[in-house]
Write a protein that binds this DNA or RNA. Structure first.
Lengths: 182, 182
DNA sequence: TGCTAAACGGAGACAGTCTCCGTATTGTCG
DNA sequence: CGACAATACGGAGACTGTCTCCGTTTAGCA
């Protein structure tokens, strides 16, 4: 890629990150282009679809997911606590941007979504936690990690769109955790 | 209301029902107006917001909810079966239109949403089923009906946006049911 | 029949998406 | 260094959807 193209691409992603955080994932792309000091054409050439741009913005977020999963795994205590703790972190992780939960959970399992690659990291992290517990025989094994991700993602989606407090969300996560534990 | 106004209103609702079913709740309102043979102004006077129109469309749906809840309650069998059966019906009920689950679950508990009145019927129906089971001491009582509605609504939202089969959804509902049962 | 309040409808302002293509910049090769 | 592809830019503008304003029409009543 030509140097100027790279520069512009970086600037667009940087601006998009800020705008998305402020206005949610449905912010105007033309506005992002303008704020980045480029024409709409340039933005659309680099990122043909909105999802492509979101995908780029999420790159940084991926590292954060990895780290959080590591911490959750290091968490000492009863399986229920570990599970609940991870669920809470999971909800927090996918809720950093307004509309994030729906976006991410919807993309999960959708082969054609460019966001999916990012979801895989999340799913992998989730899988690690689940495997850990499964090895101890603490959770039922007739439910796939993907289904668990969707269950928790569903709660996060509702919480996001209804602006629910963590205190309201926790009992719902408890239900899922209890339903999962053997 | 003047007779011609009533006629137009009815026509708009009727057309909207068909269009929403086909294209989902984000179909073009101007198109609905055109199909109903009225100007956009007329549509927007009757229904200032999209939600107001959706609300009107849902009126018929409410009766259906009532009826389904009655049937579920008449369902003989173990509490787990009753619960699971109701959950499946619940998902089906709120999924009749594309985008319905997100719309309905998001409106739940939002005082200002015009759709909420319709959700109340759903919540009431859900409450009846839950109360029935609670009376038998079959389900935990530290979770509110609203939270249950959100849990199941979350699953439906994900299922809707990911086009999941009922077979994929059922295990997720089982998790919730098992987490709820004492 | 004539009047008035109510209702209509469509032109058009506005905002967002996305593309096309003339112009400008980059990097390479003689 | 200079010229020439190749690459990238950007913005005008087509298109779609939302929503409003206001001149025109109509229903219903006296």
């Amino acid at each position: 890629m030509r140097a100027d193209a790279q520069r512009n691409r970086d600037r667009i992603v940087e601006v998009a990150r800020l705008v998305f955080r402020e206005q949610g994932y449905d912010a105007s792309l033309d506005l992002i282009a303008k704020q980045a000091g480029v024409g709409p054409g340039t933005l659309y050439r680099h990122f043909p679809t909105r999802d492509d741009l979101i995908d780029a913005v999420m790159q940084a977020w991926v590292d954060h997911v990895q780290e959080t999963a590591d911490k959750a795994l290091a968490h000492e205590g009863a399986p229920r606590d570990l599970l609940l703790h991870w669920f809470e972190e999971y909800v927090r992780l996918i809720s950093v941007h307004k509309g994030g939960p729906a976006k991410i959970t919807g993309a999960m399992g959708d082969e054609s979504s460019p966001i999916r690659s990012k979801c895989e990291v999340l799913q992998a992290a989730s899988g690690r936690v689940l495997d850990e517990l499964r090895a101890e025989g603490a959770v039922r094994d007739d439910v796939t990690p993907l289904q668990v991700a969707r269950l928790v993602g569903g709660v996060a989606t509702v919480a996001d769109s209804s602006d629910l407090e963590l205190a309201t969300v926790r009992p719902m996560l408890e239900v899922i955790a209890d339903g999962l534990l053997t």
